[in-house]
């Protein structure tokens, strides 16, 4: 069996001086028929974990084409202008979040047109995986996120990606205007893969997601080698926004010094960290867990404001 590799530009806009703002796709096509899987990353230009994971997937398939069937479309960087500036937003007159601009418009602004073209290229795939890397000061477990509207259908399909947790988002405008939300509305199965590349071992988390994706491809009939796939756990914790998530925010401005709790099951009253004032040499706030449960998000050492998210806990059922 052999594969063909084709790199093409699927969305573009000319910039004023001798440059295209271009979104590139690498298509790996097997000569044996199979499903079409798309993997995107870099919609926020400062999130780089997808580069490594997509490289690992691509390299693996090109090294072992005999195990691969179907079509794999890889879009490693959806926000190349942001990458250059290490910037989440798309650099433009008003610095817009690309993941709040979908579905875009055919004859809209440059960003809307790019989003429209990207969505057009992705829609109809059997599955789209959009890899994110959390924000700068947040540590996350490996999460698969999906929209609420089709969660009964999507949850069983997410298990083979082998995440630590599955998160069902509410149907609200901020999610509807994301790439995943827009694809879901078009009837294309789509997941966000969220993982923290900064404080956890980036090599470890990259390999974890890489093997999760291969396990998913194995389930989809796109990858026949079961040697490096994972055992699918059926009872992955599922969390629902507004139901079994406890968001812990701070009430005092200061510096947050976290206790390392990410991935731990903690009890009500356990400390998640402290907010300090260096000027006065005092602890402003001892941040305690209000419930028992799994800490799946935790803020790292950073400056905080009232309302800054410090942790998310999957509450244990009482």
């Amino acid at each position: 069996m052999s594969i063909t590799k084709e790199v093409s530009i699927i969305a573009s806009a000319a910039l004023p001086i001798c440059e295209q703002w271009a979104i590139r796709r690498c298509r790996l096509q097997s000569d044996s028929a199979g499903p079409r899987l798309c993997i995107t990353s870099g919609i926020h230009g400062n999130e780089l974990i997808g580069q490594r994971i997509i490289f690992m997937i691509s390299h693996c398939i090109q090294t072992h084409p005999e195990y691969f069937s179907g079509t794999l479309d890889l879009y490693p960087m959806l926000n190349p202008l942001g990458l250059d500036l290490n910037e989440r937003m798309v650099p433009s007159h008003t610095w817009l979040d690309m993941n709040r601009a979908f579905p875009g418009q055919k004859d809209g602004t440059p960003l809307e047109t790019m989003c429209f073209q990207i969505l057009n290229d992705l829609s109809g795939a059997d599955l789209v995986l959009d890899i994110h890397a959390s924000t700068t000061e947040k540590n996350e477990l490996y999460e698969v996120r999906m929209n609420h509207a089709r969660h009964d259908d999507l949850i069983p399909k997410a298990a083979s990606l082998c995440p630590d947790i599955i998160w069902v988002y509410p149907d609200r405008p901020s999610f509807d205007s994301s790439l995943t939300g827009a694809l879901s509305r078009l009837g294309t199965d789509a997941f966000i893969l969220e993982a923290d590349e900064r404080s956890m071992n980036p090599d470890g988390i990259s390999k974890r997601i890489f093997t999760g994706i291969l396990t998913k491809m194995h389930e989809m009939g796109m990858w026949s080698d079961s040697g490096i796939t994972l055992t699918v756990v059926e009872d992955i914790p599922v969390i629902y926004s507004g139901k079994n998530i406890e968001r812990i925010t701070c009430e005092n401005p200061g510096i947050f010094i976290p206790e390392s709790r990410i991935g731990s099951v903690i009890n009500m009253g356990d400390s998640l960290g402290y907010i300090i004032s260096a000027l006065e040499g005092i602890i402003l706030e001892n941040v305690l867990s209000p419930c028992n449960g799994l800490v799946f998000t935790q803020r790292s050492y950073s400056a905080v404001y009232p309302g800054t998210l410090l942790a998310r806990i999957r509450k244990e059922a009482v």
């Binding site: 979040d97 709040r100 925010t249 800054t308």
Partner: peptide, 21 residues
């Protein structure tokens, strides 16, 4: 501090992030 557009945070949330508040 959040790199967020305040005019994309409505209706907000009294116990949410700073911009949501």
């Amino acid at each position: 501090p959040e790199n967020m557009d305040l005019n994309r945070r409505f209706p907000g949330d009294p116990s949410g992030s700073t911009t949501e508040r």
